[in-house]
Simulated assay, not measured.
Amino acid sequence: MPVVSTHRDDQALTLTVVSEFPASVDRVWRIWQDPRQVERWWGPPTWPATVDRYEFEAGGQVRYHMTGPDGEKARGWWTITAIDPPHRLEFDDGFAGEDGEPLPTDVPTHAVVTLEATDTGTRMTLVSHFASTDHLDQILAMGAAEGLREALGQVDLLLADAST
């Protein structure tokens, strides 16, 4: 399992997940850059993701949905707020309605992804920033930390696939 730590910080209103991968920073960056690769890991194994729109640039819009074991769909969105390839990506992340667009009542999180080289590959740190303790509690109660851990558990197989 590539996740090495998960830390909730109630003072900073953040959830930090640190993962390590036996691949170069450039290779790990591609799991974010390529929508077909995002689909192979963004959702947990029982809720695979499908990317419907992917504009990988500052200001770009991403629309996706995850399909559950019974066929139900959970829709989400990102607005990419900053990119510094191949080391940093920032985006707002939230829930979407049936049309794939952000729900007007949704409170998004702000995610900051950093990639840094290590002696054995790459350390990826994902920090999610929340609007309040209630918001953090709500998202964690939905199983977000476990889902992210499961999703990241799929990355090693993706990185080992020579066709990607």
Rank of each mutant, 00 (worst) to 15 (best):
V155I: 15
D156L: 11
V38G: 05
P108M: 07
S132Q: 12
W42P: 00
A162T: 15
D156Q: 09
Q37S: 09
T81S: 14
I139E: 04
T67P: 03
V3W: 00
G71L: 04
R40P: 00
T105Y: 04
L89R: 02
E20A: 07
F21M: 12
D93Y: 15
A58R: 12
M124K: 04
T105I: 01
L115H: 06
D70R: 13
H135R: 13
G147N: 08
E150S: 11
L152Y: 10
A111C: 12
L158W: 10
A151C: 03
L152R: 01
P48M: 04
Y54H: 15
F91E: 00
S24G: 13
T14W: 05
G97D: 15
A111E: 08
D119N: 09
W41A: 10
V155S: 10
L158D: 09
V28K: 05
W78F: 15
R27G: 04
Q154I: 05
E55N: 02
A131N: 10
D52P: 02
R8H: 01
D92C: 13
I83K: 03
G147Y: 07
S163E: 14
V25L: 08
R27V: 07
S163C: 01
T16W: 02
R8K: 13
G59V: 01
G121M: 05
V25A: 08
D119Q: 06
I80M: 11
T133Y: 00
L140C: 01
E146N: 08
T16Q: 12
F21W: 15
R149L: 05
D156C: 08
T105M: 03
D52A: 11
T125P: 08
D156G: 08
D106S: 13
T14H: 07
E57M: 05
A111M: 06
R88L: 15
Y54M: 08
Q138V: 06
V3L: 06
G71A: 06
V113A: 04
L148G: 01
R8Y: 01
A74C: 02
L159G: 09
E150R: 13
T67G: 10
W29N: 09
A23I: 00
I83L: 15
G76Q: 04
P48W: 03
D134G: 13
A145N: 06
L15G: 05
V3R: 00
G97A: 14
